[in-house]
């Protein structure tokens, strides 16, 4: 089935059956490999993308439900004011280890900071709960979100 979706500011035609998770359209069809597969059941957050600016798990978002939405992936975050601040904080603190979860972490962190410009450590823990990091970079993720808030305030 041909579907047209809006992703990273471009209108793209994709061929996908209804019921196909957005994740696999993004990765296999559009070859945007920054969005990762970790669990497929909305329990790790590696696949997080933005739908109209809000984080969603793309492994549990179906292609037929996103036709009218604006989809944004990690590849576009450097152009986003909040995204760039989060990325800067991530570099300052060397948050990443293996890095596999970090696209999803950053997409969620941006979602949090858009909603709450001055989060506390508890706010971060609550919001980021669903983003698993098997390398357990959590300490730096927490510090990174707080640092990004500072960067945005400056």
């Amino acid at each position: 089935m041909a579907i047209s979706i809006n992703i990273n500011g471009e209108q793209r035609d994709v061929d996908a059956e209804p019921g196909t998770p957005l994740l696999w359209v993004i990765r296999d069809e559009l070859k945007l490999a920054g969005t990762k597969f970790g669990c497929g059941v909305a329990s790790c957050g590696a696949c997080t993308v933005h739908l109209n600016g809000e984080p969603v798990r793309s492994c549990q978002t179906y292609i037929e439900d996103v036709e009218d939405a604006e989809i944004t992936t990690i590849e576009k975050m450097a152009e986003d004011r909040v995204g760039a601040a989060v990325q800067q904080a991530w570099l300052e603190l060397d948050v990443v280890q293996c890095g596999y979860c970090q696209s999803g972490q950053i997409m969620s962190a941006v979602g949090l900071l858009r909603e709450n410009a001055k989060p506390t450590a508890e706010d971060v823990d609550e919001y980021m709960y669903g983003n698993a990091c098997r390398c357990a970079t959590y300490q730096r993720i927490r510090a990174g979100v707080l640092r990004a808030a500072e960067i945005l305030e400056a």
Partner: peptide, 21 residues
Amino acid sequence: TRRKDSPIKINGEAKFAMDVQ
């Protein structure tokens, strides 16, 4: 000293084996 692999791991550029196409 910062990690050499940080910059590509924050913007989707890093290629893991899973990303081979």
